[in-house]
């Protein structure tokens, strides 16, 4: 009984002491504590994906790890002039031009599709690009991985059967398929690198010794020169080197990304005439050493077709 009476005031005074102690070191530490509390809250919040590994969905000729956002339509015009070693009579290639006009669309943030039509070989192509892994800022996932699957149908009859032979040029002979993995890492704000193991299947090839399946390893990269300008490069090496279509060479492209508001301009120099994967990676015939270099550019203009969630009542507007 007595003990309880002693205990009561003791506990109260202890509690009071505790409060008092808090009171005395309040002004500074209290705010520090609050800040720490808040910081621990924000730091625990999920993992942030690394963004802007490349400026746009293409490095130069080929695909980059970037996808379009959900509901975004990208209108792309790719232009390749003739070879600069054609001299003044062809105005260093500028008299000739080969283009690809295409539309890409983001179905979800991880899946995009695209179609296009190229001058070179009168090629119609379609592709699907899907994200599999995404690099995170805290490096719990150090790499991004995507898959590109594409199909292309050329209208030009490359090796038509002799007239009157009665041999039919089948539709299937026009078709080629592409499987590609993109493995990318943004090493720093200024440096991103990407590996692109690629498989191309040609349904029909010109020579008996030509392989129907061509394999290649691509290496691409970006070095940011400023917030709006970046240097890009892309090289595709056919492996093994002799398992290639007759007369073809590896493709090397060097370019600049220049970004202005809603546009991204890509200026580039390449020994490839074509613009689709199967022509660039498997059917490039020009050589840098011989001056078979094409000047070219890509223009991309994006349109938000489907408003993202939460923007139904936003005040976003373009006059």
């Amino acid at each position: 009984m007595q003990l309880k009476f002693i205990l009561f005031p003791l506990v109260f005074s202890l509690a009071g002491l505790h409060l008092h102690a808090q009171e005395t070191n309040k002004p500074k530490d209290e705010t520090e504590d609050l800040m720490k509390m808040l910081e621990s809250e924000t730091d625990n919040k999920g993992t942030a994906y690394t963004t802007a590994t490349f400026k746009t969905t293409r490095i130069a000729n080929g695909h980059s790890i970037e996808n379009l956002g959900k509901g975004v339509l990208d209108f792309r015009i790719n232009h390749r002039f003739g070879r600069i070693n054609q001299g003044f009579s062809e105005f260093f290639g500028l008299d000739n031009a080969s283009t690809r006009i295409g539309f890409d669309y983001g179905i979800t943030d991880w899946l995009m599709v695209g179609i296009g039509r190229s001058t070179y070989l009168k090629d119609a192509d379609g592709f699907v690009k899907a994200r599999i892994l995404r690099q995170t800022d805290n490096d719990r996932m150090p790499l991004s991985l995507s898959y590109v699957g594409a199909m292309s149908i050329q209208a030009t009859e490359l090796y038509p059967p002799p007239a009157g032979s009665g041999i039919e040029y089948k539709f299937s002979q026009r078709v080629a398929y592409i499987n590609q993995l993109l493995i990318a890492r943004k090493f720093a704000n200024w440096l991103s690198l990407q590996l692109m193991p690629t498989h191309i299947h040609y349904n029909f090839v010109q020579f008996r010794d030509d392989p129907n399946d061509v394999f290649a390893i691509g290496l691409g990269g970006r070095i940011k020169l400023s917030n709006r300008i970046a240097l890009t490069g892309e090289y595709y090496m056919v492996v093994p080197p002799n398992d290639r279509l007759t007369g073809t060479r590896n493709s090397l492209t060097l370019g600049f990304d220049i970004e202005t508001g809603g546009h991204v301009f890509q200026l580039l120099f390449s020994n490839s005439t074509g613009i689709t994967e199967r022509t660039v990676i498997g059917q490039t015939t020009g050589g840098w050493d011989k001056g078979d270099i094409h000047f070219g550019f890509n223009i991309s203009r994006v349109f938000t077709v489907v408003k993202p969630k939460g923007f139904e009542s936003s005040r976003n507007k373009i006059w």
Binding site: A52, L68, K70, V72, G261, V302, T304, K307, P308
Partner: peptide
Amino acid sequence: KFEKALMQEH
């Protein structure tokens, strides 16, 4: 979050 993904990136 921006309505335009590209604007968000910029």
